[in-house]
Design a protein around this nucleic acid. Structure first.
Lengths: 339, 339
DNA sequence: TGTTCACATGTGCACGGTCACAATTGTGAT
DNA sequence: ATCACAATTGTGACCGTGCACATGTGAACA
């Protein structure tokens, strides 16, 4: 009837220019806050933009300046409280700095998944990368793919190639361990995280260091998977033999599972067994008994991480990052041993 | 000495073309799996791509075809278990379909934050939007900004403008309520979520519907904020007067806080008070006592959500989505009333 | 009045793909 | 051998922005 519809196309910089009676370049300058622009011109252009509901086209921008202004996040376990909090903070901080964020989840932690996720991120043209995942393998893949973008890892320990950024996990673990020792415990188990998580390793090291420093004999840590379920099943076995008086769990969820198992075994907490967690998730204060744990500031971590990355992107030498000190939160899940 | 360095530029389609002795368009055809291509040609081009470590430039692609292949997620509380799980599933599903995902977090839930987040997403040129947040306001803003991309909301209830996709919250809440009534409870409180969360509203409606259907008198629900802390403080007040025998909490975290308060008040669970939660977070099975709750499949939700969006993007009429039925999980936090 | 210079604005092309269309090659039938 | 037609490949323009450079404008100064 009326011929083909005009095929609405989003207004471009040139449409704005035409209506404002200026050149497209002037419009571009308005967009980029160029200093030498007459106020009246700027105002006129802005007005037309408003009228047209003009939105700059990101793809065109990225293409022409060869920069995507995008940061990638590679994450595993992204639905856990810690990573999720950090991710949220990273997004906020990045957005504030005018950067976009793209997240890729690791389906599994084998080589292929890591490679797939990394390729996916690189395809997006990321300028920087944040890794929140089992570092060791990821960094192998990073090197192997000869990935060049600056990256930061949100975990500590392991290779300190200047990229790691973290709450001082070792110090946190030592705090927790020391607390138990000070209470009088001598037979202390450590329920660790998965072997290839550097966080897990750091906490384990902190535990072993402190035990060693205080001359308390140790047994081999138990390797868990961060879940409450694992804590529960590990607890069922541990409380069966009960050859200890305290457990330091490397995260709060596993500590919760342990508590559950302890009650199942007819134990009273913290009288019969002391338990310390790590992370201080928002629920920890309401566990039964309220959990003594190590608080990490995940959000601060995320923020610093973006800051470091942006520094690097700007070409500045990365400042020697001082790690964030965790806080030890004493609640009611620990007590002196009675046995 | 040697003049300016050659300024390494990523190889482009034309570089590949030159080395392979074909035209750039042929290379483009290889990239897009065009059917009529001699096998030998394709192989030659692929080989050169391999040699050059060629990576297509996303920005250029997006620009020239006018499509970004990006889906946006607008989220609040993204570090909670539910949203985080859905987000992970969405990312996975989208990636599989060749889409990218961008997430924007709501700093606060006021009008400006919503608008800022939405603008940020639109700037990225998203083709579709998933909303995981207090719907009501978001959709007001969506309309007001006359946003045109197809969108899907991950919550139920409220306006059913064909965009909502969800676990049937009302049914879930009725299940929970019915369970309490069947046990013999007659004085049941409901600890609801924030007023403007449609999820909260739906659960509340399910509660009220079932109470009404079973002819049980109700009191006004208490409006919470999803946190365990809130549950605890609400519990302190409630258990002070104890004019009820059961509470249906609209999420597991608040239920945990309630349990904490109940113990503080010297109550024994579930003998003195029955508590039901909602969500079945992984920790719920290890609460004390293990929480009876309503399980939602957040991941499935995320997947369906992407499917619906892609259907819409492909121009197909959205199929009338049947909502996902939640499962009621009976554990140990409920019992017949003794008072 | 001419010169200088900073400021303000315009011109044309590049970025790396895709699209529409043209050109070339190959194949089987006549 | 010739033709019709399909399969394969090439050509040039275009997507929306930013950059380098050219140009225009006005004020300050000699």
């Amino acid at each position: 009837m009326t011929g083909k519809p005009p095929k609405v196309r989003a207004p471009s910089i040139r449409d704005v220019a035409r209506l404002a009676g200026v050149s497209h370049q002037t419009v571009s300058r308005v967009l980029n806050n160029h200093p030498s622009l007459r106020d009246s011109t700027r105002a006129k252009v802005l007005q037309v933009m408003e009228d047209l509901q003009y939105q700059p086209n990101r793809a065109a921008r990225a293409l022409s300046r060869g920069r995507s202004r995008t940061i990638g996040i590679l994450t595993a376990q992204s639905s856990e409280y810690g990573p999720a909090s950090s991710i949220a903070a990273i997004q906020e901080a990045a957005q504030e700095a005018g950067y976009y964020v793209n997240t890729a989840n690791l389906a599994a932690d084998d080589h292929e998944s890591i490679e797939a996720a990394l390729v996916q991120l690189m395809l997006q043209g990321i300028e920087g990368l944040v890794v929140i995942a089992p570092q060791v393998r990821v960094f192998d893949v990073l090197e192997q793919l000869s990935i060049t973008v600056p990256y930061v890892s949100l975990q500590s320990g392991g290779r300190q190639d200047g990229h790691a950024l973290s709450v001082d996990q070792i110090a946190g673990a030592r705090l927790a361990t020391r607390h138990l020792i000070d209470l009088g415990h001598r037979r202390i188990y450590h329920l660790a995280g998965p072997q290839d998580w550097i966080e897990a390793e750091a906490r384990m090291r902190g535990f072993l260091d402190e035990m060693g420093a205080m001359d308390v004999p140790t047994t081999a840590p138990i390797l868990g998977d961060w879940t409450a379920d694992f804590g529960y099943y590990a607890g069922r076995e541990l409380f069966g033999r009960l050859d200890f008086t305290a457990i330091f769990s490397s995260n709060d969820q596993m500590a919760l599972g342990l508590m559950h198992a302890a009650r199942d075994a007819g134990l009273e907490l913290p009288r019969d067994v002391s338990i310390v967690g790590f992370d201080d998730i928002p629920e920890a204060a309401h566990f039964w008994p309220p959990l003594t744990t190590v608080r990490q500031d995940f959000a601060e971590l995320g923020r610093r991480c973006v800051a470091a990355l942006l520094e690097d992107l700007a070409g500045h030498e990365p400042v020697a990052e001082q790690s964030i000190m965790p806080r030890f939160i004493v609640r009611a899940s620990t007590a002196p041993p009675v046995r």
